[in-house]
């Protein structure tokens, strides 16, 4: 389901899609959307639409990633001619171009210094602050990137995108507590985002995945958030996958601790109620049937069920197969 659409590119662009996207460059560069006539006449014959510039921007990104720097420069010049080179967004695009064309880490450092200079002139340029984080990440300095993103968040604490970035940066360093904190901030801003609930549930799960025995309250929280994500989206593959994974894990842990009940009471000293084994079993049944339905409908090619990522469906099927084997 990854069509090469420049207007609304998919959230996951594999290299072949990126290539298909950037191959549209000659077509779009061949005709100018703005007219060369003087001002009042140009309004009459202008062929630009709001989508024109979205298409240009997305094409610019895919041209950069496939190394088509000439097209990227041409597109950037068009955007600069249209919006002026003092626009915050155009400054950022210029920065991205410089980043992409930098040959070595030293060049990238120079781009970083240029960002510092821009920020001295205009400290409110949030997009450039975000680019700084991206450059630090590309330079392989995630600790500095985290510092930069926390500074950004002190100035703009309602930026859900930045909190999500912070959460993922912390998660990449296995700082689960901080990652969960940042993910909870995302939830405060966008409480209905099913993907944010699945993300926080994944973090809770990963924070205890390497522990043996796993921490019951983390698993319970993870279960809670996965439940919320499928409550918000009744066909969310990732949510049901997580639900299935956590319930089968909890099933094992709870039936173990049922044989040794005194151990369980010492473990959950937090005030997170651990669900009863019956609830967990019921949830597992729901998740299994829902996942099986999604896999079946996707495989049979039924219209209206083709929106899932194929890799995700295959993973769900493997999970179901694995589960079927252990039960037999």
């Amino acid at each position: 389901m990854t069509q090469a659409n420049l207007l609304s590119p998919p959230s996951n662009i594999p290299p072949q899609t990126a290539l298909a996207l950037s191959q549209k460059a000659p077509l779009i560069l061949s005709s100018s959307p703005t007219s060369s006539l003087p001002w009042p006449l140009s309004l009459l014959v202008s062929r630009e639409t709001p989508e024109t510039w979205t298409v240009h921007e997305n094409l610019f990104f895919s041209a950069l990633r496939t190394g088509d720097e000439n097209s990227a420069l041409a597109l950037l010049q068009r955007l600069e001619a249209r919006f002026g080179d003092h626009s915050e967004r155009i400054i950022t695009l210029r920065g991205i171009y410089n980043e992409a064309t930098s040959k070595s880490d030293a060049d990238l450092e120079k781009v970083f210094d240029a960002y510092e200079k821009i920020l001295r002139d205009d400290p409110t340029n949030m997009s450039i602050r975000k680019r700084r984080v991206a450059v630090l990440k590309a330079l392989g300095r995630p600790a500095d990137a985290i510092t930069a993103v926390t500074v950004l968040l002190q100035h703009s604490p309602t930026d859900a995108e930045a909190w999500a970035e912070a959460s993922e940066l912390y998660a990449s360093m296995a700082a689960w507590g901080q990652a969960i904190y940042a993910a909870e901030e995302v939830l405060l801003i966008t409480p209905n985002a099913w993907s944010a609930h699945a993300h926080i549930a994944t973090l809770h799960y990963l924070s205890t995945a390497s522990n043996n025995p796993p921490n019951l309250s983390s698993l319970a929280l993870s279960l809670k958030h996965f439940c919320r994500s499928v409550e918000l989206n009744d066909s969310y593959l990732r949510g049901f996958y997580g639900l299935k994974l956590i319930t089968s894990k909890l099933n094992g842990v709870l039936s173990d601790s049922a044989s040794a009940p005194n151990k369980r009471t010492t473990q959950d000293d937090d005030d997170i109620p651990v669900p009863s084994i019956e609830t967990v079993k019921k949830l597992e049944e729901i998740a299994t049937s829902k996942l099986a339905e999604m896999v079946r409908q996707f495989k049979s090619g039924k219209k209206g069920w083709q929106g899932y990522d194929e890799a995700e469906v295959i993973a769900a099927r493997e999970l179901l197969d694995r589960d079927g084997k252990t039960e037999r």
Binding site: A160, E161, A171, V186, A193, S195, A196, L206, R238
Partner: peptide, 11 residues
């Protein structure tokens, strides 16, 4: 909520 970029999981 695609702008949150949280759909591809961690890493």
């Amino acid at each position: 909520y695609a702008f949150l970029g949280l759909d591809s999981g961690i890493g």
